[in-house]
């Protein structure tokens, strides 16, 4: 495990923890897209099916379980917590997730390493993760205003993706025969999805003001 990969994982973990703490502390999930959170739950469930039949390391297993548990905890807060669920912007969070799920699944059936149930579902999770943030970005565009914590959450998720890109370059040059085209292409697409958001985030940070997205 190299430093970029570890930093990427930690940034990913931190982004989720920050979101969860924000929801717990403020008893509010205003500005958070439940659709995106549910897509991440689908991503984790379909990708980490290998928990049942493959062991890589204790680190790997623990992180997978944390990602699964935190994803479902956030969803539970947004759907079931009697105070938090009332702050959910249901009318604004209207992204049609099937427009993401169906194409990703079809693509996973067409482009994969092996035509088996677990392999297709794993590939599907890779494709879906690349676009899972879109409902959140659309919700931000609609509400036109990004509070600091929601902004930080997306910024950290973007940083995690960027660190993974560096990790892949590092591994390509240090590990013989290391290549994974499906992961690389989707990861690059995913990082690009964040670039537009990064531009406005950095601009707001430089001007030292609350972040506002263009109409």
């Amino acid at each position: 495990m190299n430093i970029f990969r570890l930093a990427g994982d930690m940034t990913h973990l931190l982004s989720i923890i920050v979101l969860l703490l924000k929801i717990q502390a403020t008893k509010s999930c205003a500005g958070v897209s439940l659709k995106t959170q549910e897509l991440y739950a689908v991503v984790f469930v379909t990708r980490y099916l290998d928990l049942f039949y493959s062991f890589i390391s204790l680190y790997n297993t623990v992180m997978k379980i944390i990602f699964l548990l935190t994803a479902f905890t956030i969803i539970w807060y947004m759907r079931k917590h009697k105070v938090v669920c009332q702050t959910y912007d249901k009318e604004q969070d209207t992204f049609r997730v099937l427009f993401l799920i169906v194409p990703c699944f079809v693509l996973a059936l067409l482009v994969n390493h092996e035509m088996s149930v677990t392999e297709v579902l794993w590939t599907f999770s890779i494709y879906l993760e690349a676009v899972a943030i879109l409902p959140q970005l659309v919700l931000l565009q609609r509400t036109k205003n990004v509070d600091n914590l929601t902004g930080n959450y997306i910024f950290m998720l973007g940083s995690y993706r960027a660190l993974y890109l560096v990790n892949w370059v590092y591994r390509y040059f240090t590990e013989l025969g290391y290549r994974q085209w499906i992961v690389w292409v989707s990861g690059t697409v995913q990082t690009c999805v964040y670039l537009d958001f990064f531009y406005y985030y950095v601009q707001a940070w430089r001007n030292n003001e609350r972040m506002k997205l263009p109409g």
Partner: peptide, 10 residues
């Protein structure tokens, strides 16, 4: 497996 290697990334 990714092309014969274990999926060690998260």
């Amino acid at each position: 497996l990714i092309g014969g290697r274990k999926k060690d990334e998260l």
